[in-house]
Amino acid sequence: MKVLLAKPGLDGHDVGVKVLAHGLIDAGFEVVYTGLRKSIEDIVDIAIKNKVDIIGLSILSGTHLLLSGRMKEVMDRKKLTTPWFVGGNIPANDIEELKKLGASEAFPTGSKVADVVLYFNTIKVVA
């Protein structure tokens, strides 16, 4: 199972996303990491090219709603149905809104690596 971890926009906080990358690899996932400063279009293209099973967006600068809106738009345009989730500084009140925009789940900072792995494994079962 292949996971794309991505850093959209200008936010440079990448400690958390790299911690998750290590954790997923140790749990047996294949991880593709985009590196910093990618546009949503770049990210969706990388997802298609690598045929990933899940896309994760790491956002800590407060732009998660704006960027997720853009994600929905580009995913729809490219007719991509890969499940995607958001991690980072996500206020609890925004999680519903993110799900409305098409995110499968949101993992605020402080989430346990084990919980994310567990969640991805449930996606695996569904897939």
Binding site: G9, L10, R37, S61
Partner: peptide
């Protein structure tokens, strides 16, 4: 702000929302 730090003007598409 991040656009200034990364070298983008305020009207650059990369500065959107920042």
């Amino acid at each position: 702000d991040l656009p200034t730090q990364c070298g983008y003007d305020s009207d650059d598409p990369m500065a959107f929302g920042e």
